Simulated scan of single mutants.
Amino acid sequence: MKIGFIGTGSMGSILIDAFIHSGALLPTDMVISNRTIDKAKQLADKHTGLEVAKSNIEVMLKCDLIFLCVKPKEYKNVIDEIRTISLDSQIIVSITSAVLIEHLEEWLPCKIAKVIPSITNYVRSGATLCMYSERMLEEDVRVIEDLLAYISKPLRVDEAYTRICSDISSCGPAFMAFFLQKFIDAAILKTGISRELATELASEMLYGTGMLLTSGGMDPTTLQQKVSVPGGITAEGLSMMENELDGMFIELVHTTHAKYEEELAKVKSLF
């Protein structure tokens, strides 16, 4: 089976790299295209055997499973280009949260899936959110999830929860990295500890925390209870954060959802 990628920007490139590094795919299994062809050629230079197509149409003609890794504003141009040559036997996988399955089904005759990856997939970890149209057969779903399992934990979610699930799995790494950076900056400002040491300590701490919350069998509440001793230093810090951060995460979800609704409206207006 030939796998196509239309769009080799940030997330498209991460998926291609991850599939190759994990052994899920060989470079010769893939055909890629990009609006700026030099970006696609850079990937091909890195992965010998990776085929760069001259157009999106060429990708569609050569591939059975095609990942659409383009920004919402680019969807209309791409769909208009490929819709007349799309086949009902092909599988289109969109990775753009603001483009709904019902829209893709209206625009294309293909089997439709929506997958929301994460930057953590680059190191073969984290979740991948999976949503499927009714056109998808169970064997089609298995093909996609077997592929994604090389680089992530595929999780089927209701499309109605796309935004909040994506907030946690896809935006979450940036949010956690921001929180960690502020922790590091404060440690340096208050104590003079070196940035190198503080960053190494914080990074290893976050990695270990992730292990405890996955293979370690703990949930966030249990972990806090295990570390915190009543009246101790950790308990004092948790109490301070409970007061200072009250309402912040509600506002964060409100902000991301407002931006999502804005993007949904823009996509609808394109068609």
Score class of each variant (00 low, 15 high):
residue 81 E to T: 13
residue 117 P to Q: 08
residue 115 V to A: 09
residue 92 I to C: 10
residue 108 L to K: 02
residue 106 E to D: 05
residue 117 P to V: 12
residue 95 I to P: 04
residue 83 R to A: 15
residue 88 D to Y: 07
residue 90 Q to L: 13
residue 86 S to T: 14
residue 96 T to G: 04
residue 84 T to R: 06
residue 110 C to Y: 08
residue 80 D to H: 04
residue 112 I to N: 05
residue 108 L to V: 03
residue 87 L to T: 10
residue 86 S to K: 11
residue 84 T to E: 15
residue 96 T to S: 12
residue 106 E to K: 00
residue 104 L to E: 02
residue 112 I to F: 08
residue 90 Q to D: 14
residue 102 E to Y: 06
residue 104 L to C: 00
residue 95 I to M: 14
residue 83 R to G: 11
residue 94 S to Y: 06
residue 109 P to M: 12
residue 99 V to D: 00
residue 93 V to S: 04
residue 113 A to H: 01
residue 80 D to R: 02
residue 92 I to D: 08
residue 105 E to D: 01
residue 107 W to G: 01
residue 114 K to I: 08
residue 113 A to K: 01
residue 97 S to K: 00
residue 80 D to F: 08
residue 114 K to E: 02
residue 79 I to Q: 03
residue 112 I to W: 04
residue 108 L to S: 07
residue 113 A to D: 04
residue 83 R to Q: 15
residue 88 D to G: 07
residue 99 V to T: 07
residue 110 C to L: 10
residue 118 S to I: 14
residue 118 S to N: 10
residue 105 E to C: 03
residue 80 D to G: 02
residue 87 L to H: 11
residue 116 I to Q: 12
residue 83 R to L: 12
residue 97 S to T: 12
residue 114 K to R: 14
residue 117 P to S: 12
residue 118 S to L: 15
residue 95 I to A: 10
residue 94 S to G: 07
residue 90 Q to C: 12
residue 88 D to I: 01
residue 88 D to P: 13
residue 98 A to T: 05
residue 107 W to Q: 04
residue 86 S to E: 09
residue 113 A to L: 02
residue 116 I to E: 11
residue 106 E to Q: 02
residue 103 H to M: 14
residue 109 P to K: 09
residue 113 A to R: 02
residue 115 V to Q: 05
residue 97 S to C: 11
residue 84 T to G: 06
residue 79 I to R: 04
residue 90 Q to G: 09
residue 104 L to S: 02
residue 78 V to W: 12
